Amino acid sequence: MRKIIATLTISSLFLVSCGGDQKKQITDLPAIPVTINGKLDTNNSPFITASGKIEAENSANLSTRMMGYVTKLHVRVGQNVKSGQLLVSVNNTDLQAKKAQVDASITQAQAAYNNAKKDYDRFVNLFSQQSASQKELDDMTARYEMAKAGLEAAKQMRNEVMAQFSYSNITAPFSGVVTNTFIKEGDMANPGMPLVSVEGSGRLQVTAMVSESDITNIKNGMPVTINVKSINKQISGKVSEISLSAKNTGGQYLVKINLNQTDRSILSGMFVNVQFPIAKTAESTTKTSGVVLIPTSALVKQGQLNGVYTVGNGNTAILRWLKIGKTFGNQVEVLSGLTTDEAYIVSADGKLYNGAKISVK
């Protein structure tokens, strides 16, 4: 029995020692050899470029706060609408019944108030003539105030019901175009469920993703040049918003740009390249590009997200999320997030993770 205990003790010490060595190795792992495709950017070009997408400045998914059947869909996708125009009608039979009850309660409260006011006025005159006591006047005053409060409460109930009617008739919050309808006549509308999507047709903006090495060089109000890929057109714009966090954008920073001019050929959803007119002080991870094709084997998938490992500062692996398009054999088209000459990791002699040290073969 003593031999067994001694053996177990020695084994435990050996495991603890191994665990400590393993922890030490994890914190000081060697660089993972990788194979890349593309060229590492080591030059200093006169501008920084980033890919992005055109979006409407004003956009909204409209929903309702009440439950009911959709009785009428007044618009279709692509239709221009004006501010306040009726888009969707939801059945409001329940509200009509509630409104009738509230109107009846207002009539009742109004009658009680009128009667209490007459009695109150009468007792005020009697009290002034010393024909009524202070106690009688106080009781009549209390009755009058209660009737007055009851009438006010009934009126506020009517205001609440009338406010709910606005959610049975969904109207356009601004002038624009209908981009999507999520329901049809006869469907059940639930609170918070999108019914119609509307985008403002007046002003467009560009949402671009900028790498961590370039974001510090971009300032609000900076003029930029925007290349619209699909129509081969160049327009100008100005930086309006800069995000200071890349927590939810795959290591890239969100920059919004207002367009100085637009025409009918420029549509929401088009992909663009944005040129920021500054000299780079560090290695940029974005370049202007045309069609970008990468092998499907290089993709990293997490749920509905698709990404690829790029080479970051200090020879580290940086996971970048992509928007992908069509598949051509063993290659897939990248619509946003990567450009033609940009280096990305094709294969690695080990398991990659965000921030892992790498050595290019």
Rank of each mutant, 00 (worst) to 15 (best):
I4P: 09
L8D: 03
S17Q: 06
K39I: 05
K39A: 13
F47I: 02
A50N: 03
N61Q: 11
S63Y: 13
R65Y: 06
M67Y: 02
K72M: 10
H74E: 13
V75M: 05
V90Q: 02
D94N: 13
D94G: 12
A100S: 08
D103M: 05
A109I: 03
A112C: 05
Y120A: 01
D121S: 11
V124D: 01
N125G: 07
L126T: 04
Q129E: 12
E152L: 11
K155N: 14
Q156L: 14
Q156D: 08
S166M: 10
Y167Q: 07
S175E: 01
K184H: 14
P191V: 08
G192W: 12
V198F: 02
V206Q: 02
G221N: 10
V224Q: 01
T225F: 07
K233A: 12
I235T: 09
I235E: 01
S236P: 09
K238L: 03
K238M: 08
V239T: 08
E241Q: 13
E241G: 03
K247T: 13
Q252F: 15
L254W: 03
V255M: 05
N258Y: 12
I266Y: 02
I266P: 06
F271W: 04
N273P: 06
F276M: 01
K280S: 15
K280N: 15
T285Y: 13
T288M: 13
L299V: 07
V300C: 12
V300A: 10
Q304S: 14
L305F: 05
L305T: 10
T310G: 04
A317R: 00
K326L: 11
D349P: 03
D349S: 10
G355E: 05
A356H: 00
